[in-house]
Design a binder for these strands. Structure first.
Length: 869
DNA sequence: GCAAGGTC
């Protein structure tokens, strides 16, 4: 009697091991009591690449499209081949009479298991059972679910839906990418998810570029009576904006001249309450971390993964779900008690009556997907980084908030009549904060300030008339948070109302596990770029979408609605409602038509500069006299001579290179960008140095700043030069080399005569440099050691004048230099919150650092600041 | 040089 349990990932195998007391750890599995527990690492098997079917698909050409394999085949994923080997071997265990599939309870979990079984040649369905739950895998949940194993055939439909998803994405992606790449002359990838998301970014960029701000005026009157003061905003038929500027001016004049007092026409108060927010799904967490800390989606995922995997203080992060299972009630009760010990302030308002199955906002099996919501599992270990502390705190607060009472508040709406016009005043007073104690909101808006207790008929004396001139604003640029929201809820792109209802929250573009990756792919392929928090389509991305939208068939790839519809069809197949054959037939037909179209359609429009492989000759090679040809990313001669298209952030055109090859000098050109992100202007020089041809910048010819330091002729590290083996080597590290104009503006760069001893220090007696005993001198941005410059053995110690968003005071500096903690002081976090804590100077193995203490709940808010430069 | 889906 031997049972084999297969899980999706190591952490779940560990849960089984604990629950069943199967503790002997072998290489790649656990063993004991006649039970083997092994794990996958996500997908271990993938679809063949086109060239695996036939070598003729190795070359990308329109002639071989569409590629529609029949049948589709699978192969092991190379990097996890070892683990697949372990599972294959265990499946051959003599006397194995039961295989329990315990991969995640969802479509992809099913695919992971079935493709492994397929690859292992294990076909005896009679021996296979399905373990199916989305509850947190406490020992009790594992054991009770093992008593309710399902026949694997109950999940055949789900496997079919997963298989269709795989091959449909493959057919569309492989064929589409090849067709567009060949047609447009550079790598242009397309796919159900990435192209739909890119289209959203492109659409938003167009909306913003075409947006024309319209001026309007908002008129406000300040009223007062014996009860107090309030401000009324002019309105008519719910509209507060006055577009006709002359009319607004007339209105202001009339109101200013009006002598008769106004009267309160209506004063309504309404009591309302908001329930606590749902627990976090990954997307919710990513949106929140993006808004508060500016973290990109990928970064939040990475940090959460570390907290789950290494620190073990967060549950599995890649979840769609905002609820827990009903079987996890006891676990939650214990968890709340435990976490409350270290963060009492967050949990003191918890209503224990809400830690109950009647609380459907938390415990709801019907809303459970593959995994349960993201929750804390234990306290944050002290080894956590500042970023980890930030993410952990969000999850902890959200968890605490979920068990708090509702937030009760009162909305007030006053309408004041004055000079035959109407003015509105709205306000909101929090009566009892409830969950908002654990989940603070930002400062109130001005118009939600205190309003006097007015009643109908109260007099309203005019104090002041004010007109605010404003402009309409374009739709906001996308951030990670906003685009994730669109991907999660594409319902608004569905046209029919009936479909819209079905779509609400059920299907999205991509999945929790891949959304962050998709954004990174768009950036990596240069279809989109990050600028601070915002995410915008590049020219290249716009070009791709523009070309697709010129087509009649292939344009559906740019439609978020279409990808949502696919998902819907697949869900129906999984439920046994869809017409199986129709789905794939429809996709195949689409691919076929799309290929017919992309082979013949005329695509007008200019490709972004420098992004094509024309294969054209742009000039003669200076090394051998051969032809220099334009490739994807460079201009190249058969002898090995290479010129990169992109130098210091600027794309070289064939014309520029042609000129350079002919005359050995070209330019000056604007628009180079140094490593420190500064733009500069320079000419290019092609010259022979120590036997190789090299490109360098020449600053002299344009007479601008920074000239001379690194003049023409000096070897630059990005130029082509033969290495020891005779071939050409190159590097694109150009920017740092040419950033000479930027001198560091630190303390050290100041001329010596500007340095002066710090006054405050002299009054209390000089404090020596803690690092070397030298004296501390005030610089422009910090207090540094006089033993700088540090070219050989000097001291690099400095304490910056601005630390954690605040100006350092003299007494704080004195404390730090004396190696004492400062008094508690207010500091500003990167997301603008104020935290009161102490600073201290510490000598760590990584060097001297100024650190901010954790707060009362043990949560760290600040990264240490290094005191060397 | 290609998809999207997992996990680390």
């Amino acid at each position: 009697m031997t049972t084999l349990i297969l899980t999706e990932k190591p952490s779940v195998a560990a849960d089984f091991s604990k629950a069943l007391g199967v503790r002997t750890r072998r290489d790649g599995y656990y063993e004991g009591n006649g039970t083997l527990i092994c794990w996958a690492v996500g997908h271990l098997v993938e679809l063949f690449a086109p060239e695996d079917y036939s070598p003729s698909f190795k070359k990308w050409s329109l002639a071989t499209l569409p590629i529609l394999p029949e049948p589709f085949k699978y192969k092991p994923i190379k990097k996890s081949g070892k683990q697949l080997g372990v599972i294959k071997k265990l499946l051959k265990t003599p006397g194995l009479d039961r295989v329990i599939i315990a991969t995640d309870a969802g479509r992809e979990g099913e695919v992971i298991a079935r493709t492994i079984l397929l690859q292992a040649g294990f076909t005896d369905k009679g021996r296979i059972m399905r373990f199916w739950t989305s509850q947190a895998l406490t020992p009790a949940v594992v054991r009770s679910t093992l008593e309710k194993l399902q026949p694997i055939t109950d999940y055949d439909r789900l496997w079919r839906a997963g298989y269709y998803r795989q091959v449909a994405d493959w057919m569309v992606g492989m064929n589409g990418t090849r067709a567009l790449t060949v047609r447009l002359g550079d790598l242009y990838s397309v796919g159900r998810v990435q192209t739909a998301v890119l289209a959203l970014l492109v659409q938003r960029r167009r909306e913003r570029e075409n947006f024309k701000p319209e001026p309007y005026v908002v008129v406000k009157v300040h009223f007062a009576n014996e009860k107090g003061k309030w401000i009324g905003t002019w309105f008519k038929e719910k509209e507060t904006r006055i577009v006709d500027l002359d009319a607004a001016q007339g209105l202001v004049a009339r109101l200013t001249a009006e002598e008769t007092p106004g009267v309160v026409l209506s004063a309504e108060k309404e009591k309302k309450s908001d329930p606590p927010p749902y627990l976090f799904s990954l997307t919710d967490l990513q949106q929140e971390a993006n808004k508060r800390f500016g973290f990109p989606a990928k970064k939040t995922l990475n940090v959460a993964q570390g907290l789950y995997q290494d620190k073990k203080c967060l549950s599995y992060p890649r979840t769609d779900s905002r609820v827990l299972g009903t079987q996890n009630l006891d676990m939650v009760k214990k968890l709340v008690d435990k976490l409350a010990e270290t963060a009492p302030a967050l949990f003191k308002g918890v209503d224990h009556g809400r830690i109950a199955l009647s609380n459907k906002r938390v415990f709801n099996d019907a809303k459970l997907t593959d995994h349960h919501a993201l929750i804390p599992l234990k306290n944050l270990p002290p080894s956590a980084t500042a970023d980890e502390a930030k993410i952990y705190e969000l999850v902890l607060r959200r968890f605490a908030a979920a068990f708090h009472p509702n937030c009760h508040y009162e909305n007030t709406k006053i309408v004041t009549g004055f000079s035959s016009e109407t003015f509105q005043t709205t306000g909101k007073i929090i009566l009892s904060p409830g969950w908002r104690e654990a989940w603070p909101i930002k400062a109130k808006k001005e118009d939600e300030a205190y309003i006097p207790p007015l009643v109908n008929g109260d007099a309203a004396h005019k104090e002041k008339v004010a007109a605010e001139k404003k402009e309409t604003t374009p739709p906001a640029a996308y951030t990670d948070a906003l685009i994730l929201k669109e991907m999660t809820n594409p319902g608004r792109y569905v046209s029919e109302k009936a479909m819209k209802d079905l779509f609400r929250g059920e299907v999205g573009i991509g999945t929790q596990s891949t959304r962050a990756q998709i954004l990174e792919i768009l950036i990596q392929r240069e279809y989109a770029k990050r600028e601070g928090k915002t995410l915008a389509a590049t020219d290249k991305g716009c070009y791709l979408v523009e070309m697709l939208q010129k087509t009649a068939v292939s344009r559906v790839l740019t439609s978020p609605e279409e990808t949502a519809r696919w998902e819907m069809s697949l869900n129906r197949i999984a439920l046994g409602e869809g017409n199986n054959e129709n789905f794939l037939a429809t996709i195949k037909e689409f691919v076929q038509k799309s290929m017919d179209e992309l082979k013949t359609v005329v695509m007008e429009g200019e490709a972004p500069v420098g992004r094509k492989r024309t294969g054209e000759v742009v000039g003669r090679c200076p090394a051998c006299g051969g032809e220099v040809i334009e490739e994807y990313k460079n201009f190249k001669c058969a002898c090995g001579f290479v010129l990169w298209k992109k130098i210091a952030g600027k794309n070289l055109t064939p014309n520029m290179v042609g000129h350079l090859l002919r005359t050995k000098k070209s330019g000056p050109y604007n628009g180079f960008i140094s490593k420190k992100k500064k733009r500069f202007t320079a000419s290019l020089i092609l010259a022979q140095k120590e036997g190789s041809w090299q490109v360098t910048f020449d600053f002299d010819s344009n007479g601008k700043k920074g000239g001379g330091k690194k003049a023409a002729g000096e070897p630059a590290p990005w130029s082509s030069s033969p290495n020891a083996s005779g071939s050409f080597s190159h590097s694109q590290e150009a920017a740092s080399y040419v950033s000479q104009p930027e001198r560091p503006t630190t303390l050290a760069s100041k001329p010596a005569q500007n340095q002066k001893p710090l006054r405050g220090l002299n009054q209390t007696g000089p404090r020596p440099c803690p690092a070397c005993g030298g004296s501390i001198i005030e610089g422009k941005r910090g207090f540094g050691c006089s033993n700088w410059p540090a070219d050989k053995g000097g001291c690099r110690f400095v304490i910056w004048k601005t630390l954690f968003g605040r100006e350092l005071t003299e007494s704080q500096l004195t404390s730090l230099l004396s190696m004492k903690p400062t008094r508690p002081c207010n500091l500003t976090t990167s997301d603008g919150r104020t935290v009161k804590t102490r600073l201290r100077l510490t000598n760590t193995p990584q060097g001297w650092m100024v650190m901010a203490d954790p707060d009362e709940q043990g949560i760290k808010h600040f990264e240490p600041v290094v005191c060397a430069h």
